[in-house]
Design a binder for these strands. Structure first.
Lengths: 243, 243
DNA sequence: GAGACAGTTTTTGGATCCAGAATGCAGAGT
DNA sequence: ACTCTGCATTCTGGATCCAAAAACTGTCTC
């Protein structure tokens, strides 16, 4: 079992956290909300790897606040499934098992196909135009944080998040659980997924619902296979490390 | 808009909260976890009605702890969608709109039909026996807290929560959002839903997947209609109140 | 030499204290 | 008489402080 997750040195990690903290500079409603965003981003971009133990004191110092808003943030992250609390023993970054990842993709397929079906029933030409722009942005950008944002906006528009807030919230939750692994996969094999959003929006614009659903499903299957391969490799590696 | 939700007197509410606090006596890992359970139960059984403003001080005094674990609990409840924070203006019990309730039932139908389909593919005679017992318990009990527990255990077994934790978590989340309204509906029309769990388990035992799915769906539709009627009535009443 | 027990140190979780922001009331001006 | 503005009160959100529990280390014994 990987317990410490010491992929990088503690010093490097502290610096990366501080850099994230500076990016999330001012303009926040509350310090706790800022801490939540910083720690979430750190988990998603791999600064805090799965299995990493999260010491409240260290996080607080890195961000430059007290431990209290850190605790608020960690509680929220636990609800998101990114962090797990071991009673009286603090929090650690939650690692996803292969089984859980498979389940998440099963659910995403179920929900997102339904969302797409509903959205396509009332799609407008304006939205398609907007979607093409967003798809281009999402397919062009490779860098971590930016990519996640662009992709989120694309899907929010595609599924009409405004009209179906509860459904969108569920989809976002599922996507959040996987984000860090998808980014890791993109680093490993960057060539494989260049124009996936473009293809999807082409199918949507074509008006053929069944075809669009098929494109979406195979896209999800493709990413799922990549992520699971990554998880398998990590598990094998960890096992190979011995005790 | 119902803002204060003063259905009962403040004194009565404080007493009800204290009673809940006593029920959740000892044996808790942390005070925050206890506070979470108490407040959640209070929301679910109507002691804290939708729209009610949640003053941290008052809650802390009623339960007999400090404000800090209350805040932890409220953050968790926000993640559950039972509470909403208005920045710098504290938390209030979140009310569900008719649109959101409709969406929740749409999603539950989608997820639970899928869960039942998967579970029926690998059902065992032992589980059916166990389910019959649980169904009987759930159909017999009427009282609030007990009923929720019994019903939860029934569905956890039916959908094989152990084998599919992520899916079960999502279903639980959705069910949680509606719990208080379902209980309210049961109070209004107690005759309508006596043997629903029994009927469902009969269909499952019969082995006909399509029929079981149909029973599940019409059960969900039935409850949905009841809850939406209740919400509509509440909205009309609130509008009739004048300003 | 290895294992177990005890003491120390580290770290979480809770309570009290403090500051900043919002709301409500009152007074004055139009 | 009504409205707008300013002040006071109240409540949230954050920081510091404290206690209890767990982990680690060192020593003693078998």
């Amino acid at each position: 079992m990987v317990q410490t997750g010491n992929a990088a040195s503690p010093k490097e990690r502290a610096e990366a956290l501080q850099k994230l903290a500076q990016r999330h500079g001012a303009g926040y409603r509350s310090v706790g909300a800022m801490a939540y965003d910083i720690i979430r981003d750190a988990i998603l971009d791999g600064t805090l790897p799965p299995g990493m133990k999260l010491r409240q004191e260290t996080l607080a110092e890195s961000i430059g606040i007290s431990r209290l808003p850190i605790r608020s943030a960690l509680i929220q992250l636990e609800a998101d499934g990114l962090v797990i609390f071991h009673a009286r023993r603090g929090a650690m970054v939650r690692a996803l098992s292969v089984e859980e990842a498979t389940e998440v993709y099963h659910l995403r397929t179920l929900l997102e196909k339904d969302a797409l079906r509903l959205a396509m029933a009332e799609i407008t030409p304006e939205r398609i135009t907007r979607l093409r722009e967003l798809a281009k942005t999402a397919d062009d950008i490779s860098e971590g944080g930016e990519f996640v944002e662009a992709r989120t906006e694309f899907y929010a528009t595609l599924y009409d998040a405004q009209a179906r807030p509860v459904m969108w919230e569920m989809i976002e939750q599922l996507r959040l659980k996987l984000g860090r692994y998808v980014l890791g996969w993109r680093l490993v094999s960057p060539a494989e997924h260049d124009h996936s959003h473009g293809e999807l929006i082409d199918a949507v614009a074509g008006g053929d619902t069944d075809e669009a659903l098929q494109v979406l499903e195979s896209h999800l299957d493709h990413v799922r296979d990549g992520v699971i391969a990554l998880l398998d490799a990590a598990a094998t590696e960890a096992a190979g490390d011995g005790s």
